[in-house]
């Protein structure tokens, strides 16, 4: 673990080498999420919410999705940009070092400026949790914790898939960005507003709905949900396991690009 922090420190040091660029990136990434939320709020202000969803509930959905996304963007950047390691041969370097590969890949990149987005998502999260109309008990506390952890696991799984795909198709990364960025944006709204097939895809194939929509239905007691709706974030553990299998398979198939 100390090695991880030391690696991170190197990247923080690197980013401070380009100070102006760091500050602008910080602002840009924070503004990005802010505008997504702002546009949603403006729309809802005009139309008075989405269906029977109130604004603070939407903010909580956004907070959950954006927390997982920005946390993984910051700490999982090594996997996120793993295709670069294959291209420039860094993976070969890592393979000859006496440490776990996944760990080394995670150590291999870190984007400090994403902290703007992360802090912002934490603010949404806290605001949402405080203002939603829920009678809290221990189980509901666990549910909200599961939602946060589930979101982390889910976005981590997605960068794992992205990294795994780069073993076969180095240039196809935009597709995966659609899933991670798109997933964050679409799961910032209750998925029942989408077409059935679309909602089904993001529930059963990539379980975005399971980390915020279903458990939040339970928390808010919308439409008499069964209690296990609160446990749906656990699905992401299985999802993550499958992604790890794919990743390990990719690693075992890897052949260097040569020099």
């Amino acid at each position: 673990m100390s090695l991880y922090f030391k690696s991170i420190l190197i990247f923080i040091k690197s980013e401070f080498e380009y100070r102006a660029s760091f500050i602008f990136s910080l602002l840009a990434s924070a503004l990005n999420t802010f505008f997504i939320l702002a546009s949603a709020l403006i729309l809802m202000d005009t139309f008075g919410g989405i269906g029977d969803w109130k604004i603070n509930e939407i903010i909580l959905l956004t907070g959950i999705a954006s927390f997982g996304h920005s946390f993984v963007e910051m700490f999982g950047r090594g996997l996120d940009h793993f295709y670069k390691h294959i291209k420039n041969g860094l993976l070969d370097r890592l393979l000859v070092r006496p440490r776990n590969i996944t760990f080394q890949v995670l150590c291999s990149n870190f984007e400090f400026y994403k902290i703007g987005r992360l802090i912002e998502s934490v603010i949404f999260l806290i605001y949402g949790i405080i203002t939603i109309n829920v009678e809290w008990n221990i189980y509901k506390g666990v549910v909200i914790l599961l939602m946060i952890l589930g979101s982390l696991t889910l976005f981590f799984s997605i960068v794992l898939i992205k990294a795994s795909f780069s073993f076969w198709a180095i240039e196809g990364m935009e597709l995966m960005n659609i899933i991670s960025n798109g997933g964050r944006d679409l799961s910032s709204y209750p998925i029942d507003i989408y077409q059935k097939w679309f909602a089904a895809f993001f529930t059963y194939v990539i379980p975005f709905g399971c980390v915020n929509y279903f458990p939040l239905l339970y928390l808010l007691d919308k439409g008499n949900p069964p209690f296990w709706y609160g446990l749906t974030p656990l699905v992401t553990v299985i999802f993550c396991g499958l992604c790890f299998m794919l990743w390990n398979f990719g690693l075992s198939q890897y052949k260097s690009t040569g020099s």
Partner: peptide, 27 residues
């Protein structure tokens, strides 16, 4: 291992910092 084309060093920091990180990687 020295790969002529694949650097062992972290690009934006001094080599000495890389050395100290390698100390931890190799224990």
């Amino acid at each position: 291992v020295v790969f002529g084309q694949r650097s062992q060093l972290w690009w934006d920091v001094p080599p000495d910092d890389s050395f100290y990180l390698l100390k931890d990687i190799y224990k």
